[in-house]
């Protein structure tokens, strides 16, 4: 199974990933309306891509009372027709990876196996890789690091 892996140390903050995402999903260039967000602060000197981890036991799915979410081949997919737009998934996602924007819920679906964010990243800061043990470990490490930052 392939997942998105992010390497913040390689991220330059440019947002081509978010722009490609919003362009392919909504036909517009809008980094705020994308399933991938770059949190950046040049004064505090960091760039950090926030992606959906496609959790094994996803909170978005677990708490959706409309059963709009399902896991298909390891990808957590939202069924637009079932969704009533309550935004509970976005509120509860511990990574803030489910985005709400203009009454629209934006959830990463890995672009049917060809994620645009990866394609348009020029530094390899986002990669779409097979879930090897090593990468799996890295992913968990990063999630923990991320949660720690959140606690601050």
């Amino acid at each position: 199974m392939k997942y998105l892996y992010v390497y913040p140390e390689k991220c330059t903050g440019c947002r081509e990933c978010s722009l490609a995402c919003s362009l392919s999903k909504f036909g517009e260039c809008n980094p705020k309306k994308a399933a991938i967000t770059i949190v950046r602060d040049e004064f505090n000197r960091y760039e950090f891509p926030i992606v959906c981890f496609q959790c094994e036991d996803p909170i978005c799915l677990k708490f959706c009372h409309q059963n709009a979410y399902q896991i298909k081949d390891g990808i957590v997919i939202r069924d637009k027709d079932k969704c009533i737009g309550c935004r509970l998934c976005a509120t509860l996602c511990p990574y803030n990876a489910v985005t709400t924007f203009d009454d629209e819920i934006v959830k990463c679906d890995l672009c049917d196996g060809d994620p645009k964010c990866v394609k348009y990243c020029s530094t390899g800061a986002i990669q779409y890789l097979d879930e090897t043990e090593e990468l799996e470990k890295r992913r968990k490490d990063m999630a923990e690091r991320f949660l720690e930052i959140f606690k601050k």
């Binding site: 490609a20 919003s22 392919s24 036909g27 517009e28 260039c29 809008n30 645009k116």
Partner: peptide
Amino acid sequence: TQGIQIKYPEEMLETVE
């Protein structure tokens, strides 16, 4: 918070790639 509407999104994605 507003996006820039692109006339031909597919073409832009392709050209930029």
